[in-house]
Design a protein around this nucleic acid. Structure first.
Length: 613
DNA sequence: GTTCTAGAAC
DNA sequence: GTTCTAGAAC
């Protein structure tokens, strides 16, 4: 281990004021917000909430210190870099594969602890206080954070039983040594270690918080209640017990075997398996951010730049909606109906609604600043085939370095068409209903190569586990690679399709993503997945390299190479509302999400009341 | 994670 | 009457 990475200078502990900490949309995102503040602040070593940082890690003061000295050590979020820590949110995401990184992290933590110990050497506290390191077996906050905390636990912020237990229980407070020993045990006794994850015994850990006796850390006296524990703790004069750490194992840590595909795997394991089964290696699903619906309420068309306020967008979003469940229709035959014609243009508010997806993604904890790209549903296909059957526009999302790429082609759709009829049939709706224009969208992130990509795509249905299913009234073979990449963009591991002869849909079947791929590759023996992957990665590189300013660019092709050309009609081809509106929509989440969220709630109540009257 | 508060425990 | 806990809201 190269100690140079983790050398810590002498530290002086100067806890900040509570209002030095950034406001957070939700307490769950508090640490993420701090981490992105650190990345976006020019000289973040001057931030009062930071005690010490390196290129990879940051040690910040705890906002509610449970002892005279209390900090949190975390890996920094590194844009575009492959650090495994980026996907570790709790101890349950840790694998033996993380051993080396964790060891380095722990050495840094111990060195910080040593410096803190030095800094209190000459104070009256020096005799009684030692600095301890540990993770909470069940943390309240993500991502992974190591507590560096002094043994006194003398703090007005200790108010509840679980505060006491979480820092005094020798098993709930998981020391770095205990975690390292646990990981080490996988290499000794279990095989194969790479598919194993740490598994915290949740029930036992919870019962420690709730019902284990609260003991004094010095004399083991059992307290009657929290105030009793605090009173005794302040005046107990017994010597602090020396805790053994080397070689210790933690009784709350076990193992759980599952394949490693990233964080999203637990939500939609089939999708991840299918992608790997096809042979794609550049896609690593990360976070599944769920669904939201867009109901435009039959208002007139409007140019995106004509949107006056974010409320015009907020009122159309329903964050608790999800796609309808696919009905058991396999093998059935469906006659088409003759519903009322309903032609709609993909113009706002019936299209061009990426801003809504960005809003919901921010609300659900995506840091747009830490995201490299945001793609609509057909972008992967365009990059892979280098075929611009569409008008693709690339531009920075205002106020960020995140590149939004969407198909801005203007087209019309008829809700009476057979495709829409089949979608409604497959989800148990009235085939003749051409009035409801609500669409449901899925949000998820993937690593694509070394980049973080947010996907905002429409989905038609979900299966019994609420995973997306593509629905299509034609044989997917016709669509070839595009449908494959559209499914990947929407996070769909299956497609429900039937063959249409104009009168009816026949042979409705359900196929997996990999069988669609297999069929496509059979039809086109010259096609190979690796070439498509290279096209996608080099396309993303080209776009990032050529996007030099805040203007709108059209994605053109010359000899299959991507060329960004400044869009001649940036007003007409806008992909987001004007900057002031878009910025408030996306960034208000960080600073003022409570306000935006409350406003959204009030608006939806108003709309509901209208409906009821 | 905290804050707030009803009502149980004393 | 006061002290303390636990659950909901944020």
């Amino acid at each position: 281990m190269d100690d140079a990475f983790v050398i810590v200078p002498p530290l002086s502990y100067r806890p900040p004021n509570a209002n030095d900490f950034p406001e957070s949309s939700s307490w769950r995102d508090a640490l993420f917000n701090i981490l992105s503040l650190i990345e976006t602040t020019n000289d973040s070593s001057r931030l009062p909430i930071v005690l010490f940082k390196t290129d990879k890690y940051v040690c910040m003061y705890d906002k509610f210190p449970k002892a005279k000295y209390h900090c949190l050590l975390m890996p920094r979020r590194q844009r575009g870099e492959e650090t495994i820590f980026n996907t570790v949110e709790t101890l349950n995401d840790v694998t033996p594969y993380h051993s080396d990184e964790l060891r380095e992290f722990h050495i840094l933590g111990k060195n910080i602890a040593r410096r803190l110990q030095e800094s209190i050497q000459n104070t009256s506290d020096s005799v009684q206080i030692t600095i301890k390191l540990g993770y909470h077996a069940i943390p309240s906050l993500k991502p992974l954070h190591l507590h560096i905390v002094s043994s006194d636990l003398d703090s007005s912020y200790i108010t509840r039983r679980n505060h006491v237990q979480s820092f005094t229980s020798s098993s709930f407070f998981v020391t770095p040594d205990a975690l390292e020993n646990h990981l080490e045990s996988a290499f000794v006794s279990l095989h194969p270690p790479m598919s194993l994850f740490v598994d915290v015994r949740m029930q036992r850990a919870q019962s420690i918080l709730e019902s284990a006796p609260m003991k004094c850390t010095k004399c083991d006296r059992v307290a009657l209640n929290v105030p009793d524990w605090k009173r005794h703790n302040q005046y107990c004069t017994a010597m602090l017990k020396q805790t053994r750490s080397k070689g210790s194992l933690n009784s709350l840590l076990g193992w759980c075997s599952r394949e490693y595909y990233g964080v999203a795997a637990s939500r939609n394991p089939n999708f991840v398996k299918e992608i790997n089964h096809i042979g794609f290696s550049i896609f690593l699903p990360q976070r599944d951010l769920g669904y939201y619906s867009w109901g435009s309420k039959h208002v007139p068309y409007k140019p995106l730049r004509g949107i006056e306020s974010e409320d015009e967008i907020l009122r159309c979003i329903n964050v608790s909606d999800k796609p309808a469940r696919l009905k058991p229709i396999i093998g059935q035959q469906v006659e088409f109906q003759s519903p009322t014609q309903a032609v709609i243009k993909n113009t706002f508010p019936y299209g061009q609604i990426m801003a809504a997806g960005l809003y919901v993604a921010s609300m659900r904890g995506i840091d747009i600043n830490a995201t490299d790209f945001c793609f609509g549903g057909s972008v992967l296909g365009m990059l892979a085939t280098r075929n611009s059957s569409g008008t693709f526009i690339a531009s920075f999302i205002p106020g960020t370095r995140c590149i939004l790429v969407v198909n801005r082609e203007a087209y019309s759709e008829n809700l009476a068409s057979s495709g829409f009829q089949f979608e409604r049939y497959a989800t148990g709706k009235d085939m003749n209903d051409t009035v409801d224009t609500t669409t449901v969208n899925h949000l998820h992130t993937m690593r694509v190569g070394a980049k973080n990509v947010l996907f905002i795509t429409e989905v038609h249905a979900v299966d019994e586990t609420d995973s997306p299913i593509e629905i299509m009234a034609s044989d997917p073979v016709i669509w070839g690679l595009n449908i494959l990449l559209q499914m990947i963009s929407s996070g769909s591991s299956r497609i429900c399709y039937g063959q249409s002869d104009g009168q009816a849909i026949k042979n409705i079947s359900l196929q997996s993503l990999s069988s669609v791929a297999q069929y496509f590759l059979q039809q086109q023996p010259c096609a190979d997945i690796q070439t498509f992957e290279q096209n996608i990665l080099s396309g993303m590189r080209d776009i990032a390299a050529q996007l030099v300013d805040g203007r709108l660019y059209r994605v053109n092709f010359s000899l299959k190479n991507i060329e960004l050309v400044p869009e001649k009609d940036p007003i007409q081809c806008a992909v987001l509302p004007r900057d002031s509106v878009a910025t408030r929509l996306i960034h208000s989440i960080m600073k003022d999400s409570a306000g935006a969220f409350e406003r959204k709630r009030r608006l939806s109540e108003v709309d509901q009341n209208k409906g009821e009257c």
